[in-house]
Design a binder for these strands. Sequence first.
DNA 1: AGGGCTCATGCAATCGATTACACACAGCTG
DNA 2: CAGCTGTGTGTAATCGATTGCATGAGCCCT
Lengths: 345, 345
Amino acid sequence: MSQPKKAPTIQDVARFANVSTATVSRALATPGRVSQSTRDRVLEAVHVTGYTVNQAARSLRQHHARTILVALPDIRNTFFSTILDAIERETTSRGYGVLVANLYLGSATAKRLQDYMLSNRADGLLLLDGSIDPETLNVLSRPPHTIPLVLACEDVPGTNFHTVVTDNASAAERATRHLLDLGHRRIGHILGPETNVVARDRFAGYAKALQQAGLSPRAEWLFRGSFEMESGFAAAARFVSLADRPSAVFAVNDEAAIGFLSGLRQHGILCPRDISVVGFDDLTVAPHYSPPLTTMRQPREMLGRMAAETLIDLLEGTEPQRGPVRIVLNSDLIVRESTGLPPTT
Amino acid sequence: MSQPKKAPTIQDVARFANVSTATVSRALATPGRVSQSTRDRVLEAVHVTGYTVNQAARSLRQHHARTILVALPDIRNTFFSTILDAIERETTSRGYGVLVANLYLGSATAKRLQDYMLSNRADGLLLLDGSIDPETLNVLSRPPHTIPLVLACEDVPGTNFHTVVTDNASAAERATRHLLDLGHRRIGHILGPETNVVARDRFAGYAKALQQAGLSPRAEWLFRGSFEMESGFAAAARFVSLADRPSAVFAVNDEAAIGFLSGLRQHGILCPRDISVVGFDDLTVAPHYSPPLTTMRQPREMLGRMAAETLIDLLEGTEPQRGPVRIVLNSDLIVRESTGLPPTT
DNA sequence: AGGGCTCATGCAATCGATTACACACAGCTG
DNA sequence: CAGCTGTGTGTAATCGATTGCATGAGCCCT
């Protein structure tokens, strides 16, 4: 009696409702296909027994898990966690679960992904990390595995999958042009990691804007970094050691911008009085920073939502599938107080 | 030939290696129980066929999914995403997957959790949200369900589960005492949501420190808010409307502190010149804010790791199970520049 | 009245891995 | 040499839900 009773199964429900398991299954999945009275009895029995479906059994039989895997380079970063949030909302509203895998660079990433994907735990992969080996992806996405795959945020060069990204290059161009429009001619850039597509695109946009203004990047005004605050902070140290300093800097993201400003402040350089800085992302803290940050706002929620949508459509074969989709979302320039006219020398 | 070949199963491996499926299973799970030569043949066959286990089948048979569910109130918040990161590291290193569920307050949370947990998708639940209905948890955790459950970050009053939390009350007391030690006597507080345990504990610590100094909270210096920047910002508006203002404020977390400072700045009130502010959490941005924030640093990674550890130990029945464990981690006061002596009037 | 429907339901196979049990064979003991 | 032990392997049941096929009841039409 008081044993650790086992979870009720469809058998229990069937017994209780005096029908076969097949009927229970149908009453639940396709209510229209059973009679009113049977349906009522089954529903009643479900209620009484407290039955819930065993997903493992269902997955085994139906060959899908109603779960997707989201692989990202760093959950701690608000940028990614916001996207993950949007993904989670969309997927759960469609009845899917979300498995997360954090891909610390350098770990046996490919192997882990494969293990995950090939073991029927997840039906599809949403990849937010462009730094993965393209060949691994090709292996996963082609027969005999044929794993539905959507790339979001970061493109993987040399592949041709469904992709949802933002317009990094043109947004960076826009940010840089904003500085040019203010009258700046001496514009530096805090770069992201060398290998990162997003960072490269943003640099390209920056370079293009300069070029259109008849300028070109100067090596000593290019500060290599990562996407983190610390790297912006480190860039500030290099900045102050320069004899000939830029009057404005475009940072690869808000975090780098914030670290940079924080570093400059330690050296008595104030923004926007002495220097203008543009960031990228419009983090929650951007409007509340001191000074409030001028930045490019990416539609992160939308990106996450569309990526999830694309993947699930793919899984369910709703869309007619005319080759890989590529969605590019636009970013907006948000002008705040971290940019201003160049100091009059 | 070029059909979408199906994924290889243990049957394929067995056929290839000329053994039974039982032997393949044993060769993989308990290599010591098959002969050297058989083992080699099986491993070879696994390699050739590209076999990976079907988790759904395994789960069905073994009655566990090697997956845990992490339920949190808001992934976007760095605070939670950092913990999630730590959890993910720990669980994957132990061979478990992580499903995430975001619990927007007010949604049919309890129902969602139950569906999730009772459907054999996950073996255990790691709950980072204290605002859930205690009764729901009791239902889940008791027969016939008996779901292993660990509470992290936020306690749920009226329940008695394994818990991993930080010392919110005493840390808040410490933060407040820091202000007292600087000579402040007029100390306000930005509160969190009324219903939140963490917010309540921090308020209690604040009140206790005041009391020990012979003071008590003044209603007009208590700013009700949430954990978000906007609520800190809103608090600033109320602050400036005060005829008689505090000289220092303890904020329920860094986000509230930042929003508050940002709001004050708009009104020309500068920190630490005019006011001292202490936050809580030590977000990444805290040292890079202007001014760099004095705050209580919580061991978030450790918290995530220990919570995951506790849950998995529970699942695997490693630990001898002598009643619910309760782990309380200590926070550290990090003094930076947002706190200073009270302005000399 | 009988043939041909549709509708509701049951029977039993199926998904892929694990594992209790059975069995064959080798080597050892008394 | 009969009997015993232990090792290595195979057979088949099992986990729980879904679903193709079969069946039977009831209805309509000619």
